[in-house]
Design a protein around this nucleic acid. Sequence first.
DNA 1: ATAATTATGCAATACTGTTGCAAATAAAGA
DNA 2: TCTTTATTTGCAACAGTATTGCATAATTAT
Lengths: 137, 137
Amino acid sequence: MKTKLDILKQYGLSVTDSRKKILELFLNADGALAHADIEKNAAKNFDRVTVYRTLQTFVEKGIVHQIPTTDNSILYALCKQNCQQGHHHDDHVHFICSNCDKTICLDDVTIPQVKLPINFTKQQAAMVVTGVCEDCK
Amino acid sequence: MKTKLDILKQYGLSVTDSRKKILELFLNADGALAHADIEKNAAKNFDRVTVYRTLQTFVEKGIVHQIPTTDNSILYALCKQNCQQGHHHDDHVHFICSNCDKTICLDDVTIPQVKLPINFTKQQAAMVVTGVCEDCK
DNA sequence: ATAATTATGCAATACTGTTGCAAATAAAGA
DNA sequence: TCTTTATTTGCAACAGTATTGCATAATTAT
């Protein structure tokens, strides 16, 4: 089984307390995390700047990906199965529960293809579904 | 033809300078607008707070809708054909051009249905495609 | 025209995100 | 293991973004 340490090394990152702790938060989270969540939940309080920079690094290395929202925040999520192999795919749908406010990666629901108007070229696609999750049903 | 005045009244809103002006900006825009765009483009400079409150009101009334992004900003867009009838549908795909940074409502591209895992209920769906738009091709 | 309601602008405040730099920590090499 | 080198952290300062309360001003209803 891969440890946090292994994961960080695998991505060519120095192993530091903050990275281990933040990675752990993601591994234990059942949904996506916002910057604020991380700042609150980290037992040892890291500097805000460190959290920003760690998240930025994780995004660049492909350990986590960003999820667009309509409430002026960015959510970050790690995709269990992919991340452990070092290939990052975030072509799945994200689900935001309107009851518990959790954001869940629907890893098995792939974003469908859409036919764009002529002369539009696609690079990336994101899809966010709002509704009620299985726990709140 | 419906005037700005008619539209505001139809949604039960008091007709004020700021609302008329901001609505006009949306009617003339060829894409979505961020709060900052509105603040800059309004000839008569409204207070930031007024712009925030106006946008909030427009969203609540269904005159505009929000578009999720991953850069910590919210985009607001009004959908020409629907808004003039008083029915609001934002079930179309939004396109963000990575070259000119414009956000365009692809009114004719409907968000495809996705099959959610069992026990998930869908209320809304949003889809954002990034790429190169027709003007930048 | 007047009263009641609603919206605006200002001030104050809080939250969010970024940059430069010195100190601390981790990695690499002897 | 110790030393050197490279990287990361935390602090301070700053800029941008968003919210709230309240008095004033404008709009709507009577």
